[in-house]
Design a protein around this nucleic acid. Structure first.
Lengths: 357, 357
DNA sequence: TCAGCTTGTGCGAACGATAGCACAAATTAT
DNA sequence: ATAATTTGTGCTATCGTTCGCACAAGCTGA
C-alpha cells in the first residue's frame, strides 16, 4: 500500500531507506506536506498556529495531521530549536515519602505546562558523574533538584552549561534558585506551640547537618526557644529516616522519667513517626507523657496511630512556584537567581498537648 | 572569539549563527574534529571505539573530548540512529510505597544499562491522551508500566507504534510482556501458613478488581484454602490504600468476638497496615487476637509497630528481568511477548501466630 | 497605472550525530 | 614488481524540524 512501487524521481535514484528506516512509517512533517501539497515549512507553521498561515490552509493541515496520527518528533524539534521540553529531576531518597509526593505533583504540573520529567537520579546514593551527564546529553531545558543532600554535583554541571536550576525544598546555594517552605518560621511556630502548651524540656531529633532545610528548621526552633528563655534539652541525630527516629525514641525512652523530655521536635515526619513508635513500644504515652511535633505533613502523618501535629509544607504551591521560576529562566536566562520561601501551615492533631487542654 | 571575522568560504557566504545559537558553545563533534584536524565521522567513530580507528587517533581524540568537556547530544544521535536511550515509565499511585521503591530500583538499573527514564505518568489519576503522546514524541525505545491499573491506554499506544512494553507487577494483557511476582503462589503460601498456624476464620482485605495482581493473590489464596477444606470467612474491599485497609479493620473490630475472624490476609502491605492500626486502636491485639499477613514487603512492613509477616516481592530481580525483556525486544522487535513470574519469599515476622508457637 | 505594502508560502540551510560508500596508504601475497 | 588485501579516514546524505529570507500574489493609495 505505502507508495507501492517507488516511482523513480526526476532527480535520479534517491537512496531512501537506510538499513532499517528508523521511524517505521510514522507520519512526519514531510509526509504531511506531500499529502497537503504544500512545503514542509508550511506544515510546520500551520501546526504551531503561526499567524502567517491562512485559516484555511491551517485547518486543512490540522485535519490531515489528525487523520495520519501525526506526532511531532521531539528530538528533531530539539535539534533544530534547541529546546527539548525536558526537565531533569533529581529526587531524594524514597525513604522519605515526601519526595514521592513531590514527584507526583511535579509530574502533573510539568505535564500541564507541556514539559516532561527526565529522572536523573533517585534515591539516597551519591549521584554519579555519568548520571549527571545525562542532563547534558538530553539537553534538559531546566533542572529540578529536590534532594536536600547530594545535589551540588548536579548543580555545578548545570551551572557550567547554562541550564537553569531550581531547588525545591532546599536552601539555595550559589548558582541556583530555590523554593522552600519557610523552614525557620515553621520551626519557630512549633517552638511557640510547644511552649504555650506547657512544654519545657524539649528534645530535637535532627537530620544530618548536610540537610539544609533541616538545619533551618532547627535554627528557627532554637531561636524561638531562646527568645522564650529556654533551650533544647537534648539534640539527637535521627539520620533523616524512620529507623534513625526510632533509635532516638529508644534513647529517650531509656532515660529515667525525671530526666525525660516532655516534648520532641522531629525535624521531619518520618523521624517523628519512628520516635513515636519507639516511645509507645516502651510504654510511654504520646501525648500524655511526651508530646511530639514534626514537619512535612506527609500522608502517613494523618494516619490514626500517629495523628501528628506538624507543619504542612505547601507542596502544590512549592512545585508551582518552582516551575514558574524555572520556565521564566528558560525563556530569559539572564534573570537573576531567586529564592522563594512559602509559609507552612501548622496542622494540629493529637500528638502534642495543646495550650487549652 | 568564535571564528572572529568569518572567512568567506569558497562556496559563498555561509550563514552561520542563527538568531541565537542553540548550543551555547558546548563542544560538538565538529568542534572536536576541527581541533583534531580530522573529519567528524572519525571523531564519532573514535568516541564509540570503532575498531577501524587507529589506537593513536582514538586516544588523541578521547583526550581532546575530555578536555573540551564534550558530551554527545542525545537528540542528534536519536535522530540519526533512531534510538533514543529513553524508557518511558508509567508509575502507580505513590499512595503505595511499593511503587516508589520500584521507581528507585528502576532508575538505578536503567542507568546501569545506559538508559534514562522518562516519567510519563505518576499517580492515581487517569492517564491523559496528551500525556501518552509524549511516549511517541520522545521516541522512547521501550516502556515500563507498573501501575496495576490505568495502563491499557498507554499499552495500546505503544503497541500501535511498535514500542516494546513490559509490565512490572502486573499480569500481561494483549500486546505486552510482563514480569510479576508469582502472586497466586504467594497467596497459596500465605494460606498454608495461616492454616498451619491454626487459623480457621480468615478475612481478606482485597484490592479493587481492576488490580490484576491483587486478583491473582486472592485467587491463589482462596484456591489453597479450598484445597484445605476451608473458605474465606469474609472478603472486604480495602481500595488498595491505607485508609481503605483501616476502614476494613474497623469493620472487623466491630464484630462480636465470636464472629470475628482469627486472621486477616491483606492483599497489600499498606492495606494490612491500615487494618492492623484499626484493630489495635479498638483494643484488639495482633497477633494474639487476630493474625495479619500481607504481600509486598515494603520498607514500613518491617517497622516495629507492624512487624508484618508478608510475601516479599523480589523487587530487584523483577526490575532486572523486566529490563532484560525490554532491551531484548528493542534489539529484536520480532520477539514474542513473554510473561515471567518470579517466586516471592515469605518473610515471617510477628504479625501472625506461627505453627510452632 | 504603477510603486509600495500586506499576506501567505516556499526554499534551503542549519541543528549534531551516524553510517554507507569511496578511497588513499600501508601491508601482504604472488 | 604488481595485484590483492587490509587498515584508517573522509565525504556526504540523512534523520525531522525550525527559521531567516526570498518571493509571488493581492490589495491599497497616489
Amino acid at each position: 500500500m505505502r507508495e507501492g512501487m517507488a516511482i523513480p524521481s526526476a532527480r535520479g535514484a534517491i537512496p531512501r531507506a537506510r538499513s532499517q528506516s528508523p521511524s517505521k512509517g510514522r507520519a512526519t512533517i514531510v509526509t504531511l506536506s506531500q499529502l497537503a501539497g504544500v512545503s514542509a515549512s508550511t506544515v510546520s507553521r500551520a501546526l504551531k498556529n503561526d499567524p502567517r498561515i491562512s485559516e484555511e490552509t491551517r485547518n486543512r493541515i490540522a485535519a490531515l495531521a489528525t487523520k495520519a496520527g501525526y506526532t511531532p518528533n521531539a528530538f528533531a524539534r530539539t535539534l533544530s530549536s534547541g529546546r527539548s521540553g525536558l526537565l531533569g529531576i533529581v529526587l531524594g531518597s524514597v525513604q522519605n515519602p515526601f519526595y514521592s509526593e513531590l514527584l507526583e505533583e511535579a509530574v502533573a504540573q510539568a505535564a500541564a505546562r507541556g514539559m516532561r520529567l527526565l529522572i536523573v537520579h533517585a534515591g539516597g546514593g551519591p549521584i554519579e558523574d555519568r548520571t549527571a551527564e545525562a542532563l547534558l546529553q538530553y539537553q534538559v531545558d531546566g533542572c529540578i533538584i529536590t534532594s536536600a543532600e547530594l545535589s551540588s554535583n548536579a548543580v555545578n554541571i548545570c551551572a557550567a552549561n547554562g541550564v537553569p536550576v531550581v531547588m525545591v525544598n532546599r536552601i539555595p546555594r550559589l548558582h541556583a534558585s530555590a523554593v522552600a517552605c519557610d523552614n525557620a518560621e515553621g520551626g519557630r511556630e512549633l517552638a511557640r506551640f510547644l511552649v504555650e502548651g506547657g512544654h519545657r524540656r524539649i528534645a530535637m531529633v535532627q537530620a544530618p547537618a548536610r540537610s539544609s532545610t533541616g538545619m533551618e528548621r532547627v535554627r528557627g526552633f532554637v531561636e524561638q526557644l531562646t527568645a522564650l528563655g529556654l533551650e533544647p534539652a537534648m539534640r539527637m541525630d535521627g539520620g533523616g529516616h524512620y529507623d534513625g527516629g526510632f533509635a532516638c525514641g529508644q534513647e529517650i525512652a531509656k532515660l529515667p522519667p525525671n530526666r525525660r523530655p516532655d516534648a520532641i521536635f522531629g525535624i521531619s515526619d518520618v523521624m517523628a513517626m519512628g520516635a513515636m513508635d519507639a516511645l509507645r513500644i516502651a510504654g510511654i504515652r504520646v501525648p500524655e507523657d511526651i508530646s511530639v511535633v514534626a514537619f512535612d505533613n506527609i500522608a502517613a502523618a494523618s494516619h490514626p496511630p500517629y495523628g501528628l501535629t506538624t507543619i504542612a509544607q505547601p507542596l502544590q504551591a512549592m512545585v508551582h512556584r518552582g516551575l514558574d521560576i524555572l520556565m521564566a529562566r528558560i525563556r530569559d536566562p539572564s534573570l537573576p537567581d531567586e529564592a522563594v520561601q512559602l509559609r507552612g501551615r501548622l496542622i494540629v492533631r493529637r500528638s502534642a498537648r495543646v495550650p487549652g487542654a
